[in-house]
Design a protein around this nucleic acid. Structure first.
Length: 489
RNA sequence: GGCUUGUUGGUGAAGUGGCUGAACACAUUGCCCUCUCAAGGCAACAUUCACGGGUUCGAAUCCCGUACAAGUCACCA
């Protein structure tokens, strides 16, 4: 059996949306599961839709996800070029289009697009389904040549017999049968000499030796048309792996046009590429075990086409968020620190605070990196806060009870010379014992008094440690004064 | 409208005729742990697999119909 070869064939029309990335992932996994080749082909035959810089987004996304291609632009494997516009220049499509004409699988058509469009609209208005019956099919060879020589614009259309039906077996959806009389004789080669997707995709997949075509299921019903071309050329049909759509909700597919979340958007929000990849692998595919966290390498091993589903899967940001948190928590501390560095810098600008210590209190508490700045903003700024924050039923704490605790803490802290976690810990435990209180009745108000927040990452020892003696005492002093003033009123 | 495909809980899903009185995970809710938050632990959460028929001793699993949804019917991919 020959080596498996799959391809990802995006159009450079903007950012990379999640459904697209998942298709790339599946194509990659299908190939790598069998030690095959993964090929990148840029489908830029629609010059009108091309977006500046879109190719770079494709390259950088695949790179960020470690979806490295074995062949593609700038990585020749002998069947290039891998950019369709360059293949147009090489005359590949024109050559094969004419070959197909000779083989009877296509014909030259001089019809004007406006005329066909008008007919189509008429049919639609009458509620009839429109199928173009091309009169050019009956043109003689001489007539065709004459009109071409006269400079008349033309396209090449697929020729389809209207009787019978065409079937194929999709690896995930099973047997698909389509009546030939419902198939449109689509344009293969446009009047500008560029191929349409319908044609380029067949030619390139064959010429590039693609064995498994992995793509979205929107092609499920047009695949028989492509197979007709393979047959006309006398080529072997590839295996087809059509993937179910990724949905935004019950009714809408995730799409670029809706401005839905792209890979870039998610990364900008603080989701990790590996977590995104892991999550989308599970959208439409399920493993045979209960394992949910997979590295790319593990996915290559575990992935199998049999477990790709057939119904659309709704993209659930909640689960991605959870999974992202798992990845973050599983990181070793040094890796974690470098990962969160930009976000940490955004939240804490004061250079006196130890980033390592801050990273430590954040480590097990963050799901999405964008949560970080707000979680740690109290280090830089200590705004006025409401003394009602001292009230906590569960902690058995309130402003009245907090005041003596804070005064005592301040007194003890002033005499503490070794300012580290262990000494702070001992100090507070001593205070708890001395005052005959519960841990929370001391630590809770102190934490509020030095952070100004009811919720913080880390506890009062960690925070005091990071803040340092001077700042901790300054904040404590201010909070005590505030409490005294308010309680005396 | 024609054609193609799909339909298990709020979400991803397991399930291929009896071991499912429907796994697992996310979310949600409650409890525990705990100085807060988070994490972690425990528990609850589909009398039922879109609906209606049929086949069978037995169906989420097979068949038919209905409904709903998505895709497609471009000189877009």
């Amino acid at each position: 059996m020959s080596k498996v070869r799959t391809r990802f064939a995006p159009s450079p029309t903007g950012y990379m949306h999640i459904g697209n990335l998942r298709t790339a992932l599946y194509a990659y996994l299908v190939a790598k599961h069998d030690n095959g080749d993964f090929i990148l082909r840029i489908e830029d035959t629609d010059q009108a839709r091309e977006v500046e810089g879109a190719c770079d987004i494709i390259y950088s996304t695949l790179n960020a996800c470690n979806l490295n291609y074995d062949e593609g632009p700038n990585k020749d494997g002998g069947v290039g070029p891998y950019i369709q516009s360059e293949r147009v220049k090489a005359g590949i499509y024109k050559e094969y289009a004419w070959k197909l004409v000779e083989l009877g699988g296509a014909h030259v058509c001089f019809c004007k697009s406006e005329d066909i469009e008008a007919q189509r609209e008429l049919a639609n208005a009458r509620g009839e389904s429109f199928l173009y019956h091309d009169p050019c099919k009956n043109l003689s060879k001489a007539e065709i040549q004459k009109r071409i020589d006269a400079g008349e614009p033309y396209v090449i259309r697929q020729t389809i017999d209207t009787f019978g039906s065409t079937s194929y077996t999709d690896e995930v959806y099973g047997t698909i049968t389509v009546d030939n009389n419902t198939m449109d004789e689509q344009i293969l080669l446009k009047s500008d000499g560029f191929p349409t997707y319908n044609f380029a995709n067949v030619i390139d997949d064959h010429l590039m030796g693609i064995t498994h075509v992995v793509r979205g299921n929107e092609y499920l019903s047009s695949t028989p048309k492509y197979n007709l071309m393979y047959d006309a050329f006398g080529w072997n049909q590839p295996k087809y792996i059509h993937c179910p759509p990724v949905m935004k909700n019950e009714h809408e597919k995730l799409s670029k046009r809706n401005g839905d979340a792209s890979f870039q958007d998610l990364v900008a929000k603080g989701y990790l590429p590996q977590a995104i990849l892991n999550y989308i692998a599970l959208l439409g595919w399920s493993p045979e075990t209960e394992q949910e966290i997979y590295s790319l390498d593990e996915l290559c091993v575990a992935f199998n086409v049999q477990h790709i589903g057939t119904s659309g899967a709704i993209f659930d940001i909640n689960k991605l968020t959870w999974m992202n948190g798992v990845y973050l928590r599983n990181m070793d501390l040094p890796t974690y620190e470098t990962t969160i560095e930009p976000w940490l810098n955004q939240g804490v600008k004061n250079p006196n605070y130890d980033h390592h210590l801050i990273a430590e209190i954040l480590h097990q508490r963050v799901n999405v990196l964008s949560e970080i700045p707000e979680m740690i903003d109290f280090f830089d700024t200590f705004p006025q806060f409401d003394t009602s924050l001292y009230t906590n039923k569960k902690m058995k704490s309130n402003p009245q009870m907090a005041l003596p605790v804070l005064i005592k803490s301040k007194e003890l802290l002033e005499n503490l010379n070794e300012w580290d976690y262990d000494h702070l810990h001992d100090l507070f435990m001593d205070q708890v014992a001395q005052m005959g209180l519960k841990n929370g009745q001391v630590m809770f108000p102190v934490r509020v008094a030095i952070s100004g927040k009811a919720f913080t990452p880390g506890g009062c020892m960690e925070i005091a440690h990071i803040l340092g003696k001077k700042e901790t005492l300054a904040r404590l002093t201010r909070s005590i004064e505030q409490l005294e003033t308010e309680l005396n009123q």
